[in-house]
Amino acid sequence: MAIKVVTDSTSDLPADVAESLGIEVVPLNVHFGSDVYKDRVNLMPDAFYDKLINGDVLPTTSQPSVGEFIDVYERLGSDADGIVSVHLSEKLSGTMNSARLASQQANADCPIEVVDTFQVSMGVGICAMEAAEVANSGGDMNQVILAARNAVTRSQCFFMLETLEFLQKGGRIGKAQALIGNLLKIRPMLMLQEGEVHPLGRERTRRKGIAKLVDTVEELAPISGLAVMYSTGPDEAQILVQNVSKFMIEGREPMMLQIGPVIGTYAGPDTLGIALISAKSGG
């Protein structure tokens, strides 16, 4: 038996990556009025953004239930030495609380550790990947927990939004509230800091905003893992991939992926983002 790694769908992990690493992804819920969807299960990103842009109702989100986490933990726990459950910032979602309560209530026949990444999107995904790689190489429970917590200290996530409208209406704007009222023809630049949304800067054009994203990656180099994320603009994301690949350690390449429905609810269309993990000291 081995250690199993669990995360949630706000990690935006591509399905093939999660499958190849053996990461179990628990979906959050997306609500359009009375219609409820499972993130990336029966509501995929393209369909979500079409509804977001062209529909009359703004979506809301909700965390998985305690019972859903219990079901996952008990199923995995029957064939595991331990479970490490890696999730988005507790300051932004009740998902961590659902996972923590489930870890206390589940009859999983193995220990369960719940880890707050203080991140969103692939900031969560990268931490889960780091934990899974150690688990898959035969690491024990303590080693996998250590890998996840070490990844948390080295990971960062930042974004360029077209507008703060969706973040503000969703109540997740945090310290970026200071940018409100100053955004005429300005692209807000945001980062996650101590689990909350903080301003990274503001740029008047998308070109300058993309340059700011690249400069921020350079400041954090060398990079051992990086994902370029987009909501509706893959062409710009591809340009970003080309511009940041030089900051990665030898043999590593950036990932490129679409931001999913839950994070897209707050980020909105035309968002670009980067999640990364800095290389360990000494390589």
Rank of each mutant, 00 (worst) to 15 (best):
A131S: 14
D116V: 03
Q104M: 15
G22D: 11
F69Q: 04
Y73T: 04
N142A: 15
I126L: 15
V72C: 11
G171S: 04
V36G: 08
L183A: 12
E68R: 15
F159M: 14
L164T: 05
D39T: 02
S20R: 15
L58E: 07
S93M: 11
P59F: 05
P222L: 00
L190G: 11
L58C: 03
K185G: 11
A106Q: 07
G268T: 08
M160L: 14
L28K: 04
A99P: 04
E113Q: 13
E253C: 01
E162A: 14
I186W: 06
M1T: 13
L101P: 09
D79W: 13
G82Q: 05
A176Y: 02
Q119E: 09
T7Q: 03
I3T: 12
G94V: 12
V115P: 07
T61C: 01
A148Y: 04
G171C: 06
V197N: 07
V41K: 02
A147F: 12
L161G: 11
G181W: 08
K208G: 09
S34H: 13
T153L: 09
L164S: 04
L276T: 02
I3S: 11
Q177I: 14
I23A: 10
S62I: 10
S231Y: 01
D50H: 14
F158S: 01
V25T: 12
V244H: 02
A47H: 11
L58K: 08
A237D: 00
T153C: 03
E130W: 09
M255P: 05
V124L: 00
M248F: 03
S121L: 09
T95Q: 08
G171T: 00
N42K: 13
R187W: 13
V84L: 06
S155N: 05
K169Y: 10
V41F: 01
P59L: 04
I53C: 08
T153S: 14
G273C: 05
H87C: 03
D39W: 07
T61E: 01
F166P: 03
G268P: 11
F158A: 02
M129Q: 15
V244D: 01
C127Q: 12
L240F: 03
L88P: 03
M229T: 09
V124D: 01
Q119R: 13
L257V: 07
M1V: 09
G233W: 10
N182Q: 15
A147L: 06
I173Y: 04
S93I: 11
I239W: 08
V228S: 04
L183M: 15
L21D: 10
M189F: 13
F158N: 00
S281Y: 06
L76S: 03
R75P: 03
V6S: 07
N150V: 08
R40V: 13
N54Q: 09
Y266N: 12
